[in-house]
Amino acid sequence: MIVAERKKIPELVEMLKGHKKILVLGCGTCVTVCLAGGEREVSIISSALRIASRNSGYDFEIDEMTIERQCDNVFIEQAAEAIAKHDVVLSLGCGAGVQAIAERYSEKPVYAGLNTSFLGVLEERGVWTEKCSACGSCVLHKYGGICPITRCAKHMLNGPCGGSREDRCEVRPDRPCAWQLIYRRLKGIGELDRLKNIEAVKDWSTSLDGGVRMLIREDHRI
């Protein structure tokens, strides 16, 4: 899922100052699961903004609403009436949600209340980790299901760098070296020979490097 975290209140106040009627709009999908932009977080951020506004004399009038998915027009429509009544929307959706709202309501300022962080999983309670870079050409089958593009800080495709340690990555002491994980996993499933092949340079044209992407499914376009 998409993992995000909320922006700090001073940044939001700075963003919103000059506006009066503000709609804080949550999203009920990924950002709800990662505790960043669901109904609960909408209430927390709204409450904090009200207190901050009173303190700094900005006089915000803040209303709250959460829709099922900000990246889906069917649900975006449900916010139409509320959005019409406000000067600005503070979206607590991911970056895709914010843009979807902005595109649909072209006359309304739509701001991002979250920093969209990565595609990841809930590792343990309160801890999310990044797993996928959406490169558009998955190589996981070659690496025991561990992505070296995402989880190796140098995107190494042929083995670890010299800074690899059995218990950590060169870049962050609190993260494991992906290549140590790949090695152990491939060994464990009897596929260590895969590591002995030289992996040729990757075609990045399917990734963001190839330009902004879109997906068309003709069988669904009627």
Binding site: H155, M156, N158, C161, I198, A200, V201
Partner: peptide
């Protein structure tokens, strides 16, 4: 950063 290719790919 770039990391378009890795060190072994560079050697090759």
């Amino acid at each position: 950063n770039v990391y378009d290719i890795d060190s072994i790919q560079l050697i090759a």
